Simulated assay, not measured.
Amino acid sequence: MFDIKIFEEMDLNEKYENMVSMLEALISDETDFITNLSNASALINALVGRVNWCGFYLMKNGELVLGPFQGMPACTRIQVGKGVCGTAVEDKKTLIVEDVHKFEGHIACDSASNSEIVVPIIKDDIVYGVLDIDSMEFGRFTSLEKEYLEKCVYVLNKYIDWINI
């Protein structure tokens, strides 16, 4: 049973450290990638907070395709180099966008989104997808979220066999 109340008294560092540990505990004994990405999006969505969308896009046939997520219905396909997600794939680096309306080529799936962080999922120099999180707040994401979300992707890479998806 998951009880989010246990995190109410924790500072952000402690909360995020627990998020990474819980993610590893959730996925370490499970081999189904849909199950693992579903639980990852639910956990991250619950613990990062103040977000309106949290999920994954996976590389398939040279484009990003919508995977497990929490939030409103989303764009189903994103070309590499397009929008924040496609740019993160092309650049192979995490992007934090304080105001998505000022990001040239931003793809607005949810009109309520104002800021975004996208962490590419890279293993052995191959991009397999992205972890994408949106917030209704401008400037919501900081280097702290970047650090811990990259740790979450590291845990996913440890247990998910991306090549066979």
Rank of each mutant, 00 (worst) to 15 (best):
T87D: 02
E137N: 14
K158S: 10
E116K: 04
V153R: 00
A112Q: 06
H106E: 05
K102G: 15
K93Y: 08
S111N: 06
E90K: 14
R140P: 03
I122G: 11
I96D: 06
E104S: 15
V127Q: 02
L95Y: 03
Y148K: 02
V100K: 00
V118D: 04
D110G: 06
N114S: 10
P120M: 13
I126V: 15
I133Q: 01
L149N: 01
D124K: 13
D124S: 15
A108W: 00
R140N: 12
P120V: 11
E137P: 00
F141G: 05
L149T: 05
I122Q: 07
G139W: 00
G129H: 06
H106T: 08
I122P: 11
L149M: 09
E90H: 13
V97H: 05
N157I: 07
E116W: 09
Y128F: 15
V118C: 13
I117L: 06
E104G: 12
E98V: 09
P120A: 14
D110Y: 07
I126Y: 10
P120D: 09
D161F: 14
F138L: 14
K102H: 11
Y148A: 04
V118Q: 01
H101K: 12
C152V: 04
V100H: 03
D91L: 15
K146R: 12
V100M: 09
E104A: 14
K146H: 08
D110T: 03
L144G: 01
V100P: 07
V89K: 00
D91I: 02
I126Q: 12
K123T: 12
F103A: 11
D110L: 07
F141R: 00
G105M: 07
L144H: 01
E137R: 04
N114Q: 13
S113V: 11
Y159S: 07
D134A: 12
I126F: 14
